[in-house]
């Protein structure tokens, strides 16, 4: 929803592994273009992806041996922490770079394998990260990134109305059977629905009880989502953290991490075995079936939209505070 929601937020825009000291990474959140890299100390840095000299994306450049961002066009070099231009090649010894020459910095922090970037008024970047819901576990963690040809709004709505269109579950099948309406808790919207182990099955409408529960817990603005597959005793079978950001031309950039939990029984063993063999228990599909997406009924996403609208109505006070 970043296209229309100006509320400052931390957005998870990259996986920790994607941000290195070797090559810059271009990411985007709505109209905000950001270049991510690590400085010489390994600390993640974020600058506006625009050289103030000739507006070329800094992400086309390189990271110097000293961990600074060098534009690939004319070699202007910027410090990641302050944005200050520290070098213009071939100046004379008595020439110095003016103090006001600097790239815009963005607040950046790292947690649980995700790089979070502050999108919004820079003065408010001291705002704390939303609480962590995802704790990496299992014997093997999987991760991935994909850009999907649907809007961020449609992506989040589909997480509520039909997560199976977006997500792949290795050993289970998610149904359209809702276990209640989405509930708001500490700023997150949580929804549960019935699920079964994979394999032959009766049509959903003839199944009275569900052996599994799929729980999605969604941050309403960013769409950052914890996905949990549970049994009816709420024991965790697998979990995933999915973050999505609005990308160019109405697409959505998605990053995710997941793992199979230490869950017993043949089905649990199968899930963990497949995970160890390279098949994630939960993953984001690389392609979205447009027909299936279009046919999703509007159901819990209606409550998400209502919640979002109410939050926006209250937003001006927050923005004033942030500014």
């Amino acid at each position: 929803m970043a296209e229309t929601d100006p509320t400052p937020r931390w957005w998870a825009l990259a996986l920790s592994e994607q941000v290195t000291g070797k090559a810059p990474l271009a990411v985007r959140c709505g109209e905000e273009e950001v270049v991510l890299f690590r400085d010489a100390g390994g600390v993640a840095r974020a600058l506006e992806d625009r050289c103030p000299h000739r507006r070329v994306p800094l992400s086309l450049g390189k990271i110097t041996a000293g961990g600074q961002m060098q534009c690939g066009y004319h070699g202007w070099t910027y410090d990641g922490a302050t944005g200050k231009c520290v070098a213009i090649p071939n100046l004379h010894d008595d020439e110095k770079v003016p103090e006001r020459y600097r790239a815009e910095t963005r607040g950046v922090t790292e947690r649980d394998g995700f790089i979070y970037v502050w999108i919004g008024a820079p003065q408010a970047s001291a705002a704390p990260l939303p609480p962590s819901l995802y704790t990496p576990g299992g014997l093997r963690e999987h991760r991935g990134s994909v850009t999907l040809p649907l809007s961020h709004d449609a992506f989040v709505a589909a997480l509520f109305d039909g997560p199976w269109v977006l997500l792949d579950f290795a050993t289970s099948r998610v149904t359209d059977f809702l276990l209640g309406d989405p509930e708001m808790s500490d700023g997150w919207l949580m929804l549960e629905r019935g699920a079964t182990w994979g394999g032959p099955h009766l049509p959903d409408r003839f199944v009275p009880e569900w052996p599994l529960v799929l729980r999605v817990t969604v941050e309403p603005v960013t769409g950052e989502t914890l996905v949990e597959m549970l049994d009816t005793n709420e024991r965790l079978i697998s979990a995933a953290e999915v973050s999505a950001a609005p990308a160019a031309r109405g697409t959505t950039a998605v990053i995710w991490r997941s793992y199979a939990a230490d869950y017993g029984g043949p089905a649990g063993l199968a899930t963990r075995g497949l995970s160890m063999a390279g098949r994630p228990a939960i993953s984001v599909r690389r392609f979205v079936n447009g027909r299936k997406l279009a046919s999703l009924r509007i159901a819990p996403s209606h409550i998400w939209r209502t919640t979002l609208r109410a939050a926006r109505d209250n937003a001006p006070a927050q923005r004033d505070t942030a500014a």
């Binding site: 000299h53 000739r54 004319h74 231009c85 213009i88 071939n90 100046l91 020439e95």
Partner: peptide
Amino acid sequence: RRDMHSRFD
């Protein structure tokens, strides 16, 4: 937002 320049420009 004006572009910044060096003497090479």
